[in-house]
Design a protein around this nucleic acid. Structure first.
Lengths: 340, 340
DNA sequence: ATTGGCAGTCTTATCGACGGAGTGCCAACG
DNA sequence: CGTTGGCACTCCGTCGATAAGACTGCCAAT
């Protein structure tokens, strides 16, 4: 079993390794920290830690490096969420100070987060499944093309274009729009999705194909309207930590661009608490991100809907700082989006 | 003066260097290409090319590498736009086959282009300054917040949220919406921008502050509605060509994320022909992209408006292939967006 | 103008030696 | 039993020298 001091040793190993990028040895530990014991004693503790697979030595006779399991223990028990500096708090204030457009807010948030942490920052769009339909607009783009625009009370707008087999009757389009808005205006998205199909039979048979197509598109928008998206910033930070990725930056950048992968990853983290959590190294192996860690937290938007935001970086990252930053930004954002 | 054969030598130097990533020497030239002369003769030609600063030797006694000036000459005179393979043509077809949403089309285009070229692909949104207002929607989000949505006939949608000092009267909002749509519906964006301000005095004085604010927002949207944006894909490709950037990948990735820089760069290229052009290495120095080249072409959207698309990569790129791909995609996209 | 030859230069790879850092073990100590 | 100092051992990274290889530039001959 690993002793109390052993855990303290693990903590400083994580701390020093993150700071210096170099394996840390017993001697440098007693030099830099007041343990009141000799290097030999530390060595004994380290041997135990290694037995528990919490640390490992890159090669015989070199310093130790935390394993993923070591980081996990560190995050679970040892990490003291380093409180933000006043400068950082101020940055959050001024950056997100006055709310505006949702797009704008999230875009600022992600840039802020990436600056605070020097990592790649990710912010997921709220799903808005509890939002209500504010307005539906149908726009005739050409003889056979129509655009549907869905506006929710949470302030997001979603458009879709569809090709119609027949020519579009502008007058009828207006009629249809009015009917649709009367039907689903103010209704929650889920309810709207079930209401919309009833529309089809309200119109004369020759209209059916057209109406059906519009309705189907809208239903898709309404349900998948909570289609998941995320915004990203700070990819450049990745190349600064390049050597932490044994040269394999490519798959990481690919995953970032893919979004889908990251959304699934966020999805798995969602089951956890609303508070800040970390997914470390090998835990992300199924996403092809075995050398990266993700620190994320839930935040809530107006509808009480939960979404996530967080940062992604090398396993060897400063969890204390990053978790504190993610938590702070998530809380601030929740406050900001709450009162709309 | 550099001879006819000298130019041919330059061409093969560019070709071989791009393919092999290694400085090319006189011997390997006569080995790989049928010049019918000896290595010594090639050496004489190379000495001339070096005098003209078209090629340079990384160190005394090593092969030669094209200079930016050399690439420029190559692109201007020597490059034969390599016709796309049938597989590539097919890829364009299937990828962009059936048009849909503008967002969707551009997003597919940029991914396609990045796949065809293995570079970072960029597609600028059309400006739509000749587009007309299709519809304006005003949505009350809360007691004091209103969202304006501008829909153009070119199929793009732009929303903005604004905070009003006073409480919002829903009935009046409907009235205002109707008036606005009657006024600017169907009008070109530029005209709409000048018409909108006349609205303010049409309403009773107590409405003035509110109307003024809405109008101002809309005018912003209409003018900056052609706010420039671009979509990007294939950033991961950059790390594959990493060694071409003497380790300075960071500023390049930053510029990509900044967008502003790239938009200015596109802006400068715009003055040139509609056809495909390249901006090479040092020519981009003012943008902090001295080691990258951008190959781009104009394309036109429905309104006849011009926008650009292209690829960005290391100076040492395959201009023949990339220029051909950019041209092909630009043409295809123009055709696709033309008939809407 | 072209060519073969040759000397000179610069890079890169390879090897061995060396110093440094760190560990593991052990015997001794409180 | 935990702690400690000492010591032998291992392994990495660096340095210098050497050798090999790849080119060029120049020159005299064709």
């Amino acid at each position: 079993m690993v002793s109390e001091r052993g855990l303290e040793v693990l903590r400083v190993i994580v701390h020093d390794y993150v700071a210096s990028r170099e394996p840390v040895g017993s001697k440098s530990i007693v030099e830099r920290h007041q343990f009141g014991v000799s290097a030999a004693t530390i060595r004994n503790d380290m041997a135990l830690l290694e037995e528990e697979e919490l640390i490992t030595a890159p090669h015989t006779s070199s310093g130790r490096v935390p394993t993923d399991k070591g980081y996990r223990l560190f995050v679970n028990q040892l990490a003291d969420l380093r409180p933000l500096t006043s400068a950082q708090r101020q940055a959050i204030e001024t950056f997100l100070g006055h709310s505006s457009d949702l797009d704008e807010v999230l875009s600022r948030t992600v840039r802020l987060l990436s600056q605070l942490t020097n990592q790649v920052a990710l912010v997921q769009y709220p799903t808005f499944s509890r939002a209500t339909v504010r307005h539906v607009e149908l726009v005739r783009l050409s003889e056979t093309r129509v655009m549907t625009v869905l506006i929710t009370d949470a302030g997001n707008v979603e458009q879709r274009t569809l090709e119609i087999g027949a020519e579009i009757d502008e007058v009828f389009l207006g009629e249809l729009r009015a009917t649709i808005n009367a039907l689903v205006g103010g209704k929650p998205l889920l309810e709207a999705a079930s209401l919309l199909p009833t529309l089809v039979e309200r119109f004369r048979p020759e209209r059916t194909p057209f109406v059906a197509e519009v309705v189907q598109t809208l239903v898709e928008q309404v349900t998948a309207g909570r289609q998941e998206r995320l915004v990203m910033a700070g990819a450049a930070n990745l190349v600064l930590t390049e050597d932490d990725f044994s040269g394999n930056l490519f798959p990481v950048l690919e995953a970032i661009e893919e979004q889908v992968t990251l959304l699934r990853l966020f999805g798995e983290m969602r089951s956890d608490a609303v508070d800040v959590v970390a997914s470390i190294g090998a835990e992300n192996a199924s996403f092809g991100l075995a050398q990266t860690s993700v620190v994320s937290s839930g935040y809530t938007a107006s509808g009480g809907e939960l979404a996530r935001l967080g940062v992604l970086g090398p396993t060897r990252m400063d969890y204390s700082t990053n978790m504190a930053a993610v938590r702070a930004v998530a809380r601030y954002l929740t406050g900001l989006l709450g009162d709309r």
